[in-house]
Simulated assay, not measured.
Amino acid sequence: MSSDRQTSTPCPDAASHDGWFRAKVQAALEDSRADTPDEQAEAHFAERRLRARCSVGERHL
């Protein structure tokens, strides 16, 4: 999966957060990149979950 998507922290108040969220949804709807196949997305997040579990496990040793 590509990591070129711009990310930012949501705003602290509800109205600002709503605007931020709506902008993110609109940007996703307008994204013209090709869809990621389900198998590729599943593999990507399975690897992330495994790394997170390993990281947590290492801190608790």
Rank of each mutant, 00 (worst) to 15 (best):
T7K: 12
W20E: 07
G57P: 02
R59M: 10
K24Q: 14
D38M: 08
E47C: 04
G19W: 07
E42V: 01
S8G: 08
S55R: 15
C54N: 15
E39C: 01
A46S: 08
R51M: 08
S32G: 14
F45N: 00
E39M: 01
L29D: 12
R59S: 10
P12L: 11
R51F: 01
D38A: 08
R49Y: 07
S16W: 00
G57D: 13
V25W: 06
S8H: 08
Q40S: 08
P12F: 08
R53V: 13
E47D: 08
R59D: 06
L29W: 10
Q6C: 04
K24Y: 00
A23D: 13
F45E: 04
H44A: 06
C11H: 13
D13Q: 07
A14C: 03
P37E: 06
A52G: 08
A14P: 02
L50I: 04
R5F: 05
E47G: 04
H17M: 15
S3P: 01
A43D: 03
D13V: 06
A23Y: 07
A34Y: 00
S55H: 15
R59P: 00
E30M: 06
D31W: 02
A41S: 08
E58C: 08
A23I: 02
D13I: 03
G19E: 15
P10Q: 03
S3L: 08
D13G: 03
S55C: 11
S32T: 14
V25M: 11
S55Q: 14
A52T: 13
T7N: 09
E58G: 06
S55N: 12
Q6H: 10
R53Y: 07
R51I: 06
R59Q: 04
H17V: 12
S2Q: 04
L61P: 11
D4N: 09
D38C: 05
E47W: 02
D31I: 03
A14Y: 10
A27K: 06
F21K: 15
R22Y: 09
D35L: 07
A27R: 06
R48F: 01
E39N: 00
K24R: 14
S3G: 12
H44W: 05
T7L: 12
L29H: 10
A43S: 09
L61A: 15
A27E: 14
G19I: 09
V25F: 05
A14G: 03
A27Q: 09
C54M: 15
T9R: 12
R48L: 12
A15M: 07
L50V: 05
A23L: 10
V56M: 10
R33T: 06
S16R: 13
